[in-house]
């Protein structure tokens, strides 16, 4: 089966209905394993102590904030290039979920920062980029809520998403540059390669678990959106009196 075969919303509805219980099951198992590893197996960091436990949710949230945007970007390409009928449903439904995860990345980062830095917020390069990303999510949602016609809103949102994708690396680079200019020493170094295996495994399990959680929400929201459009079309038929 090619991707275009899933373009039929009815087929998508039946397929997703069959898949959803399995995905939910995998998610639950992954979270059970992940929480066990985090709270009973993973060691405390020798510098940060037990606060490192926040990392096991903070890092997956920031990973998801990017992953969700990339999903939207892929959907935006699907909308603009292939005019895939499910692509704009996918993009529209991913936006609020992505915004929620980005918010959680900011909130947990702040809660992690308070014991580490002594303040709730520092203009750290990473936190600042995530904040800009969060504003971009809110802007996208605002744009889609403001344009009434769904097809037009989807196209405008797709263009803005792609412009955002092109700009995100530039924003990241400039915020990093700006940060080194103003704060030469960054305290916050959740080191990518220096992390120990005993911490990496729980982190990876949690990251996969949250990705599956995103998948569950995304599929559920997409099903709702398809039904909503169907209802909208039926209301129009009813209003036109074609019966």
């Amino acid at each position: 089966m090619r991707l275009i075969d899933y373009a039929n919303p009815t087929r998508f509805l039946s397929l997703s209905a069959a898949l959803l219980p399995w995905i939910v099951g995998v998610t639950v198992v992954l979270f059970a394993v992940g929480f066990y590893l985090v709270f009973f197996v993973a060691p405390a960091d020798y510098q940060q102590g037990e606060t490192v436990k926040i990392m096991y949710i903070h890092v997956p949230f920031s990973w998801l904030s990017m992953f969700c945007y990339m999903t939207m970007a892929a959907s935006a390409l699907g909308t603009l290039v292939w005019r895939h009928p499910l692509a704009d449903v996918s993009a529209k439904c991913a936006a609020p979920i992505g915004a929620a995860f980005t918010f959680l990345a900011l909130a947990t980062g702040s809660l992690w920062g308070k014991p580490m830095w002594g303040t709730w917020w520092v203009w750290d390069a990473r936190l600042t980029s995530v904040l800009v990303l969060f504003i971009m999510y809110l802007g996208l949602i605002a744009l889609q809520e403001t344009i009434e016609d769904p097809a037009r809103a989807a196209k405008a949102g797709a263009i803005l998403t792609l412009v955002g994708v092109v700009n995100i690396p530039i924003i990241k680079f400039s915020v990093d540059w700006w940060n080194t200019l103003h704060q030469p020493s960054s305290v916050f170094r959740a080191g990518g390669s220096t992390i120990a295996t005993s911490m990496l495994v729980p982190l990876l399990v949690m990251a996969v678990a949250f990705t599956f959680l995103f998948l569950v929400f995304h599929l559920m929201a997409m099903r709702n959106e398809i039904l909503r459009r169907r209802i909208r079309a039926m209301r129009m038929i009813e209003a036109a009196g074609v019966e």
Binding site: G49, E50, T51, K53, I54, I57, T108, L111, K114, P115
Partner: peptide, 11 residues
């Protein structure tokens, strides 16, 4: 959870 339990639980 150590002496920063509040922050961990809050997050």
């Amino acid at each position: 959870l150590g002496n920063h339990a509040g922050f961990i639980l809050a997050s």
